[in-house]
Amino acid sequence: MLQMLNAGFTMRALCVAAELKIADRLAAGPRTLAELATATGTHQQSLGRLLRLLAGAGVFREEPDGRIALTPLGKCLRSDGPDSVRDWALYLGSPQLWEVLGALRDTVTTGEPAFPRVHGLPLWDYMSEHPDFAAPFHRWMSQQSAQHNAAVVAAYDFSPFRVVADIGGGQGSTLAAILQANPSLRGILLDLPQVVAHPAPLDEAGIAPRCEVIGGDMLRAVPEGADAYLVKRILMSFGDEQATTILGNCAAGAPAHGRVLAVEMVLPAGNEPSPAKTFDVLMLLQHTGARIRTEAEFTELFTAAGLRLTRIIPTASPNSILEGAPT
């Protein structure tokens, strides 16, 4: 119990280490505490106490000569590299989100998300007005998507389709990964106009000629012409009514032989720990109605949208692929 209660200190220390780019500064090799304090403009003794805590968690290591070294776990706090989680640490450790976490009791009492109450605006609107707060979140979304894409492509056979539409697909990194692995496919990318204005991943992957990029609102309509509609980590941010609308729009666009694919975390039954359970509380705090859903809740959602949930496919990531067929 004490370990759990004290975990907040480790989490906050990780955030400070990320802000100070300690892992980046150790990428070339161990450095003395004095060197790190000078480079970061911090109080040497206080920095040493912070790094000692994180060394106890396996993030850094104190060498016999007193220099500080980076461990394999600590490499995840570097700003570069495929396994970087630095931007997520910056987002979770931001003062704005800590204020929201502090209002968890109010959310549990009222059932209303804390973020709009604490900051006066819904999350997405607040991010639009505070780009410094939004920047690490958006970078993490791109980084996380790239980390999950290979797992999605490996777990599901997209080859029977002709056209895959990525709904709410950001700048297109997931669609790019799917089309790279399936040269016969064409793609459609839909997201808000300002989001798809510069779909760099499509250009970088060399598959832009096989894609149609459309600025639009998935809550209003989705483009026709695809036989597979993909919504990746979208439904968790919406309540049931809006999530049903998104799935229903996809179902309306899909042909009889088509499929609607939702890439989401599925909340497991039982008492075992799961990242989905932690993320569910974050959704509770951030958005009205947002949640990580159980298999039974997804079944109800798909049915209400005019879909039959045909199977749930696990991936080598926290996500599963929920496949729906039009009814």
Rank of each mutant, 00 (worst) to 15 (best):
M236H: 14
L189T: 11
P314K: 06
M11R: 13
E112D: 01
F137S: 13
R61S: 12
P160A: 07
A151Q: 14
G253H: 02
V163W: 07
V153A: 00
K21E: 15
T174A: 11
N6H: 04
A155P: 07
V266W: 05
M236Q: 08
P193L: 00
S145G: 15
D166V: 01
A135R: 15
D166F: 05
D132L: 10
L175W: 10
N249E: 04
L92M: 13
L47S: 07
L235M: 11
D125T: 11
V196N: 08
M127G: 08
S84P: 02
E35K: 02
R308L: 10
A89G: 01
E63N: 13
M283P: 14
M218E: 01
L77S: 08
A7L: 05
C15Y: 08
H130M: 01
M127N: 03
E264G: 13
E297S: 13
L121A: 14
H138T: 01
G66C: 03
L219I: 00
Q144M: 11
S84W: 02
G168T: 10
V263A: 12
A226M: 15
P95L: 08
A305S: 15
M218W: 05
I178R: 08
S79E: 14
L101W: 08
E241L: 10
N249I: 00
R105F: 14
L247I: 02
L301C: 01
Q286F: 05
D203S: 10
N249Q: 04
A39K: 12
P273I: 06
I178W: 04
I312R: 03
Y156G: 04
R52D: 15
T294I: 04
P199W: 06
S159G: 03
A23L: 09
I292E: 12
A305Q: 10
L92F: 13
P326V: 15
R210S: 13
L247W: 06
T315L: 01
